[in-house]
Design a protein around this nucleic acid. Sequence first.
DNA 1: ATACCTGCAAAGTCTTTGCCTTAGG
DNA 2: CCTAAGGCAAAGACTTTGCAGGTAT
Lengths: 137, 137
Amino acid sequence: MEDILNTCRAKKLRITKALTAIVGVLMEQKLPVSLADLESHPDLRKICDRTTIFRTLHRLEDIGLLRRLNFSERGAKFTLKTGHAHNEYLICEDCGTVQALDIACPVHKLEEELAKETGFTKLHHELEFYGICAECK
Amino acid sequence: MEDILNTCRAKKLRITKALTAIVGVLMEQKLPVSLADLESHPDLRKICDRTTIFRTLHRLEDIGLLRRLNFSERGAKFTLKTGHAHNEYLICEDCGTVQALDIACPVHKLEEELAKETGFTKLHHELEFYGICAECK
DNA sequence: ATACCTGCAAAGTCTTTGCCTTAGG
DNA sequence: CCTAAGGCAAAGACTTTGCAGGTAT
């Protein structure tokens, strides 16, 4: 938590009540969350409105602390980049549940090769497996 | 083309002018396209409107001929599932260009393991690499 | 003949911006 | 103090739906 706030300070963000609350909520998430998820979170509902969350998320993204994911049909989801970020997810197309896969990155080597072959920099990836889960089948 | 239309017939879709035109345009695409891309395509612009394309895409998705992808920040993109579908893409976060990677699927084995371990069925995946391309850097 | 399909317009949903106020450094 | 951040309301950008009329089978 302090690490994150220090990075914010270093990047000239002001440490406001909203920022600390949002970072706090983001830290306790096991899965990526949407803007709407945050808006309705009890710790945020009363202290800041949607616009503040929206802009704060973008600031965090700009300074490289937050990753935006696009796997939901409608709307982005966000996850902190700190620590052991998961980049692989398993999603049921029927009930919509998402689980992070706790596996070694299966495309790390490929990513390095791509960087070499294509000249792309700052490579990262997003890998989602979709299917129908055991319950829904 | 005939294969696709036959599948449509088998699934009780009516073979309308709009359907054949949309399938035709989809077949000539090398990359996934958005609803807006289709709407402005010269072969479609005059013969059908956005709603028709929207609903046709959903019908094609329902009968399993079309895949919906979510990698663009805003709005879905679609690609036919026929033949050698690409499931891996390389995307520049600055200029937004997308290229399909012509590589052997790097997660095929993992996908089979997942099916076995989790009980998921109908597994498929979406893998996107993001970065900054050589020109934009 | 009868479902299904189409087009237009309108309603939704979620994101983004303008502008004035508040408060961090 | 000075400038970034917050809040409200309104504008955007797409997507989705209702309904009347057209068309494939």
